[in-house]
Design a protein around this nucleic acid. Structure first.
Lengths: 155, 155
DNA sequence: CCCTTTCATTTGAAATTTCAAGCCAAAGAC
DNA sequence: GTCTTTGGCTTGAAATTTCAAATGAAAGGG
């Protein structure tokens, strides 16, 4: 049973802003995914898994850390890495120091593939997001995102 | 083959803002979905399909219009409506005026179920989004969303 | 009218994601 | 040491989404 507290509705402006933002939430990922898929046959998340690995020393990272970085559940990451492995972009290897951790490692092929994909993706991010906002708006957006994420992460 | 134009990278602030916003893009839908799923066994999109129908005269709408409203592809909507139909929340009926349009119609049960689900969802939207932002930030967000969506929708 | 074309939607299969075990290495308990 | 317990990851099955036809009604053409 849901407890019926005060159903405090949204004001007209709040509702309008929320609706608009919701639309953005649904459209922007699709638009970014579309470009990556078309030009590099990568999903947004696959891209960020590869990108996450490139930045690490040894281009390797523990699965669970990678999951946090890419904002996905471990199970999903595991399946996804299996697919990237099949394509030759990533390898798996148990952590030599502690056998119950597993490392995902970016291969040379994976690194090269990412390097091919990156410029197009960055161009798309610029085109759809960065370049349409002025610096002030971008700062506000940054701050707002901080606040909302902080609230979400409050236990 | 991808044409290697100038790979104009992002500045430090641009990158930081983008990263943060990206995280929001992945976290907020999940947090909203979570509440709806837990309390009402509805996905975010299912909720908005039902909500979209409630606002229509006769609580009915053409599938293709509903798809635009809910920001989903027609095929996905069709499967999704089939599931809602199985649950008794929606019915389908060809448009009496033009047999190749199909109407999705909210049933009384669907309407009642939505009414049960709405307060909790709105509370969550308030809690995670509206109430953490001040009016100025909300306005800026609204405007920014407008701009980005406009850019995405430019052919 | 019949024949093609177009449009709105559905359908089934393939790919992906979610969910609920399952597995195995390390850490503790005795 | 052996025996549980815990933690990190994988796995297979179920649910959902995506993709590529397929269907069926209306519109156009001759």
């Amino acid at each position: 049973m849901s407890d019926h507290e005060e159903p405090r509705w949204l004001s007209a402006e709040e509702l309008a802003a929320w609706r608009r933002f919701m639309k953005l939430l649904q459209r922007l990922p699709g638009a970014l995914d579309g470009q990556l898929q078309r030009d590099s046959r990568l999903s947004f998340i696959e891209y960020h898994v590869l990108a996450g690995l490139t930045d690490q020393p040894g281009r390797r990272m523990r699965m669970s850390e990678l999951a946090v970085l890419a904002n996905v559940e471990l199970s999903r990451l595991s399946h996804l890495v299996s697919r990237l492995e099949k394509r030759g972009f990533v390898t798996r290897e148990p952590d030599p120091a502690n056998g119950r951790y597993m490392h995902a490692i970016l291969t040379d092929a994976g690194h090269a593939y990412l390097a091919e994909a990156a410029p197009g993706h960055v161009a798309q991010v610029r085109k759809l997001f960065i370049d349409v906002l002025d610096p002030d708006e971008l700062r506000t957006l940054h701050r707002s995102a901080d606040k909302v994420i902080a609230r979400i992460e409050e236990v």
